[in-house]
Nucleic acid binder design. Structure first.
Lengths: 220, 220
DNA sequence: AAAAGTATGTTGGAAAAACAACGGATTATA
DNA sequence: TATAATCCGTTGTTTTTCCAACATACTTTT
């Protein structure tokens, strides 16, 4: 147990919480550690979620099966990341499954206990709530930005929206992006080669310059 | 002041908090009420946000100006809704503006104070945190579902993903949807008429039946 | 330095979506 | 009830994207 806590003490969720406090936290939040074999189901579509998970070791994938049985992978969970936290706080039943890609170890924490601190109002409770709010808010901001880009009708507009956002966030007309071409295309929900072609066009039209991951937005 | 609290006591944020507690809460969370004239800026792009807002009266719009000055409306805020809560909990600077569409009254609450309850651990603090986690998690789930739909390449796939999700959520192959055709097209980020045509095709192919807001998914 | 692998750009034809315009049906309003 | 307004489906044309295949440049490995 101690060994396992050592592995996750640097996760965002446990940021600024003392290692000594971690084990008392486990009791307070009804912490349960579970092990899964490769291929096992960690959470199932439609099953009520009262706890959220923190992956200690292994790798998980969040998948969705639609009405016709088609499978689509929504995200990959790496160690130190939390998952199902949003569903733990709403009444809705999850519409996706979580499966273990390799043998994995998960710490489940009681979402109710986390938001209703115990009588003594332990200091780590405050910090946990802060951290959780940060994590969820952060996801929220990122999801919103992605939607802003994807909502545009053409690849050109999607690209410009994305680049404009980067420019604003990095507070400069010149900036580096974190994605390679394929990842950027996936992020925007378009075809890589078509996106490359669109980037060339924009360069020819004098709207931007770029080289690999470096971009510069120009006046029209 | 009392009058204003009366107006927002039914908001999700203040759910299950006693009216008597509201004014003590205001002190604790450094609550500030501000008034805006139509057209005034409530929050500005790039300006640090330490507080989030709860709209008491009026109507606001969240807008984004890109690098080329194009304006796009991200959302409309109605009374009792909160806004900027995600940005208040992350370090990122907001990339959007909030403007008053009509004369409006806003209650600002200190995000830091909310997540770090005071010494006496007042009961409303717990409830507020719970409510806020619910609101943000809910948004998160909704945003994720929207992205699932929008990420599909064709209008047909977007429709089927949306309808599958509805079917799962309503736990039935038959269900009613909340959007009219134009709203659904906007939600999915596609053209209304093209979407209508696609619906017809799916009906002809025997994949679904529908009439107005009623839909039924069929086996392939 | 050669070879293999990876990332990016280019192109042409097929497929899909956008767009515009219209007609019928339903709903709201005078 | 007449009229206007809104919603929805249809169609033909234009525009854009997808897709597959290939060329080039850069990176990593041996």
């Amino acid at each position: 147990m101690i060994n396992e806590l050592e592995k996750i003490k640097d996760s965002v969720l446990l940021q600024d919480i003392k290692v000594e406090e971690l084990s008392s936290m486990l009791g307070c939040l009804r912490g349960v550690i579970k092990h899964y074999k490769k291929g096992e189901e960690v959470l199932s579509q439609g099953a009520e979620i009262k706890q959220f998970g923190l992956l200690i070791e292994g790798k998980l994938q969040v998948v969705q099966y639609d009405h016709f049985g088609n499978k689509s992978i929504l995200s990959i969970i790496e160690p130190n990341q939390i998952f199902a936290e949003a569903y733990a706080y709403v009444n809705k039943l999850p519409s996706m499954n979580v499966e273990a890609l390799v043998d994995s170890t998960v710490l489940f924490l009681d979402s109710d206990k986390l938001s209703s601190p115990c009588q003594n109002c332990c200091s780590f409770h405050k910090q946990l709530v802060k951290n959780l709010l940060f994590i969820i808010s952060n996801k929220n901001v990122n999801l919103t930005e992605k939607i802003e880009c994807m909502a545009k009708r053409t690849t050109k507009e999607k690209l410009l929206t994305f680049l404009s956002l980067e420019s604003i966030k990095q507070n400069s007309k010149e900036f580096y992006i974190q994605y390679d071409r394929q990842a950027l295309a996936d992020y925007l929900g378009v075809e890589r080669s078509a996106m490359s072609a669109e980037l060339s066009k924009l360069k020819n039209e004098g709207m931007l310059e770029y080289n690999k991951n470096w971009f510069k937005l120009l006046q029209k």
